[in-house]
């Protein structure tokens, strides 16, 4: 046990990196999700088809393969900086986070699509009948309501992403799983450090689920304010 304690900086660094790549991945995921759901729902057939293809390809292939493909493609084609950050070089962290975002974007797009189609058309018609453009109606009337409806599903997606971020281990990003394995290697015992990493993931996902639960509660309470 005391052996394990001396490695706490590695776990800290790994945890920080896990949080970082998850946050970047979620931000990219939300942006791509928004972009692709708009494409998917577009009336222009070609655009809608592109959205559909992206979503089904990402959902139909293993994330590990996506991550490696994106890493090797980006590493080959771009001259990414090799500066070290939290124990890993940026030329691994950047493609890794992008890959997580691309992966998450497909799931987020599907979540948004369910949310948008769950909003009654009467909402869109009300916006349009007031003279708002279709775009303004989507942005200010439909999306905020859709977002509220999909908050639980979105929370689940981000929780998945926290855990899924461990696949970046395969491209040498020293996130918490990679650090646990490294510690296990030096200790000749993998079980204690893996248990520590499991606890860390659990704490991260638990906090995240609490945050989302709080957000849902706040939004729900607001809707029924009496005067």
């Amino acid at each position: 046990m005391s052996d394990l304690v001396q490695y706490y900086p590695m776990f800290l660094e790994g945890t920080a990196l896990t949080i970082l790549i998850t946050v970047i991945g979620s931000v990219i995921g939300i942006l791509l999700g928004l972009l692709f759901v708009m494409m998917r729902l577009s009336k222009v057939k070609v655009i809608s088809a592109i959205g559909r293809i992206y979503i089904s390809v990402v959902r139909g292939t293993p994330s590990m393969i996506q991550v490696m493909l994106i890493y090797y493609t980006l590493a080959k084609s771009l001259d990414l900086p090799t500066i070290q950050f939290l124990g890993s070089s940026l030329d691994r962290i950047i493609p890794g986070s992008i890959a997580l975002g691309i992966n998450s974007g497909a799931y987020v797009a599907e979540i948004f699509r369910a949310g948008i189609t769950s909003i009654p058309v009467g909402q869109t018609e009300a916006g349009i009948s007031l003279g708002l453009s279709e775009r303004e109606t989507m942005q200010s009337i439909v999306l905020p309501q859709a977002l509220r409806n999909v908050l639980p599903a979105l929370g689940n997606e981000f929780i998945t992403l926290v855990k899924e971020s461990s696949v970046l281990f395969y491209i040498g990003v020293q996130e918490v799983t990679a650090q646990a394995l490294a510690v296990g290697g030096t200790l000749y015992n993998f079980i204690p450090p893996l248990l520590v990493s499991a606890v860390i993931y659990f704490i991260l996902t638990f906090v995240l689920s609490q945050v989302f639960a709080l957000m849902e509660k706040k939004m729900g309470a607001k809707y029924t304010r009496l005067n």
Binding site: P120, G122, Q123, E125, A126, G127, I128, S129, L130, G131, I141, Q145
Partner: peptide, 14 residues
């Protein structure tokens, strides 16, 4: 449309 107000059966408030 700005010059035509529309009131729906289902209200459709936001």
């Amino acid at each position: 449309r700005q010059k035509m107000g529309f009131v729906f059966q289902q209200f459709n408030l936001f």
